[in-house]
């Protein structure tokens, strides 16, 4: 892997690079949640919709079968939602 590959952004929202992900794995992370808590990858606006596949692949390169990588806990909202709309929807 060349030096520039290391600096590729895996999570664009939180600007987490491949190098950051590799460090988290070296630190003992074996799951998407473990990598997220060490790097913030998947914590941004898109909530891991792009990077979780890329991270699963990186984990596979370290011997963890993609089938064994649990998806992130699925939590609302599906898309970014305005707080005011959500709390007032009953009143409409």
């Amino acid at each position: 892997m060349s030096c520039s590959d290391d600096k590729i952004y895996i999570c664009r929202c939180e600007e987490v690079t491949r190098e950051d992900i590799e460090k988290a794995i070296a630190d003992g992370a074996t799951t998407l949640a473990g990598i997220k808590k060490r790097t913030h990858a998947g914590m941004g606006l898109c909530q891991g919709r792009t990077c979780s596949k890329l991270i699963t692949r990186i984990l596979a390169e370290h011997g963890i079968k993609p089938a064994d990588v649990y998806p992130q806990t699925s939590r609302p909202p599906v898309r970014t939602a305005k707080i005011g709309d959500f709390v007032e929807e009953d009143d409409v």
Partner: peptide, 22 residues
């Protein structure tokens, strides 16, 4: 919903913001 209703009652300015995750 109750958490956000409570928060916006006390700090109404939060209504204009978006939430991305719970």
């Amino acid at each position: 919903k109750e958490v956000l209703k409570n928060a916006t009652r006390l700090v109404p300015g939060l209504k204009k913001m978006n939430f991305i995750r719970v």
